[in-house]
Amino acid sequence: MSASPVEENERRKSQTADIPRVEWLVGAVGLMVVMSAIGVLIYEEVAGNKSPPDVKLSVEAITPLRNGYLVKVRAANEGGEPAARVPITVELRSEGEEVETREIQFEYLPAHSIRDAGVFFSADPRQGELRLEASGYEEP
């Protein structure tokens, strides 16, 4: 039990040298993976964007279906905070008149993320004008 510090050090050194190089390599790769995950969180904590949810809505595509039309809607949250249960109103207008109104809801819109949804219309949305509006959100 009374190994001198020098002997103890020598013993450790020889053990460290016994460890195959591949184990150190795996350790290094592992450290990189772990640090990249933690790094993103640290960046977010230190320099992250804390702005409120900012939902940008756009129409991605209009597809005729058997009876009616499908409008693909994309919601992009460009704010720094997530939004939950975001109701979206899609209004089809023609010559200043409201023709049809549809409502959908996005369950979650994380920060800097996009989510897609579809809305059905019976009139052809290509003949009119589509108006999209997000009316609010819940904090998750």
């Binding site: 995950a37 969180l41 992250g48 994380p110 800097h112």
Partner: peptide, 15 residues
């Protein structure tokens, strides 16, 4: 379609 911050967060949660 999720931003890197939430990908990292949910990965750490499930991690």
């Amino acid at each position: 379609g999720t931003g890197p911050m939430h990908v990292a967060m949910v990965t750490v949660v499930l991690g």
